[in-house]
Simulated scan of single mutants.
Amino acid sequence: MSSPRTRSGPRPFAAVALAAVLALAAGCTPVAETEAPPPSGGGNAIEQLETLTVASAGSMRGYSRDKFPHWRDTGKNCDVRDTVLERDGSDIKLSGCNVVAGRWESVYDNRSFTDPSDVDIDHMVPLANAWRSGANEWDDAKRGDFANDLTRPQLIAVSASSNRAKGDQDPAQWKPANRSYWCEYATNWVAVKHHWRLSVTTAEKAALADMLEGCTWANKP
């Protein structure tokens, strides 16, 4: 979960995602959820899920969002939030590199927005969840890399209300209201945890396996 920054505020998946990003920037129709690409870390989502370490959720002792430095600067008065807003939106209007207007479709709840202040940039795997599943052992630099990861499907522009409803919950505790996005949501969650070598709880793994059941790309290499 991540709230917008005070002054204003997927899907990068290698070559396939780059094409989708370019299409979105041009104002084209987004790729259908059923055509979502497989995870970028090698293997399919179910195979990746099976490799994740299963462990009880760790303690929140010592946790602070400040230990996951974000958003990183990407230009004068601009940061990673602007990058994601521009990438995930259409009909984008910029002031310098600040995103000041556009159109965003929140895949979590099928809502549309034209004001960037109504959009949050969600961390697919929330920072507090990452802390409980292994990030507590990282240094701040690595946690910053995780919090600003534009390469994995870790950052996505969604409605502020859905982002805040999700909070730091895992898929056993919260799922998007838009059920058509469940396959991609589970695939993306697994891809992030697989790359960053974060653990899952027993309930989390079971929920992910249930969400991936029947997903066409989840079983493809």
Score class of each variant (00 low, 15 high):
42 G>L: 01
42 G>H: 06
43 G>D: 07
45 A>N: 01
45 A>L: 00
46 I>F: 03
48 Q>E: 04
49 L>T: 06
49 L>Y: 05
50 E>S: 15
51 T>I: 15
51 T>H: 07
51 T>N: 09
52 L>F: 13
55 A>T: 12
55 A>L: 12
56 S>M: 12
56 S>E: 14
57 A>E: 12
57 A>C: 11
57 A>V: 06
58 G>M: 10
59 S>K: 07
59 S>C: 09
60 M>T: 14
61 R>G: 15
61 R>E: 14
62 G>E: 13
66 D>C: 08
66 D>I: 07
66 D>M: 09
66 D>A: 15
67 K>S: 13
69 P>I: 11
69 P>H: 05
70 H>D: 09
71 W>E: 04
71 W>F: 10
72 R>I: 12
72 R>Y: 15
72 R>A: 14
72 R>G: 11
73 D>S: 15
73 D>I: 08
73 D>P: 08
74 T>N: 11
74 T>M: 07
75 G>L: 02
75 G>V: 10
75 G>H: 12
76 K>D: 12
79 D>F: 14
79 D>R: 06
79 D>I: 06
80 V>K: 07
81 R>L: 15
82 D>W: 13
82 D>N: 11
82 D>C: 07
82 D>H: 05
83 T>A: 14
84 V>G: 01
84 V>M: 04
86 E>M: 10
86 E>H: 11
86 E>G: 09
86 E>D: 15
90 S>L: 00
92 I>H: 05
92 I>M: 02
92 I>S: 04
93 K>Q: 12
94 L>A: 00
95 S>T: 14
96 G>P: 00
96 G>Q: 01
97 C>Q: 15
97 C>P: 07
98 N>S: 14
98 N>V: 09
99 V>Y: 02
100 V>N: 01
100 V>S: 02
101 A>G: 06
102 G>E: 03
104 W>C: 00
106 S>A: 01
106 S>F: 03
106 S>H: 09
108 Y>V: 04
108 Y>F: 07
109 D>W: 05
109 D>M: 04
110 N>H: 07
110 N>Y: 06
111 R>H: 10
111 R>A: 14
113 F>H: 08
113 F>E: 02
115 D>F: 01
115 D>N: 12
116 P>E: 02
117 S>L: 06
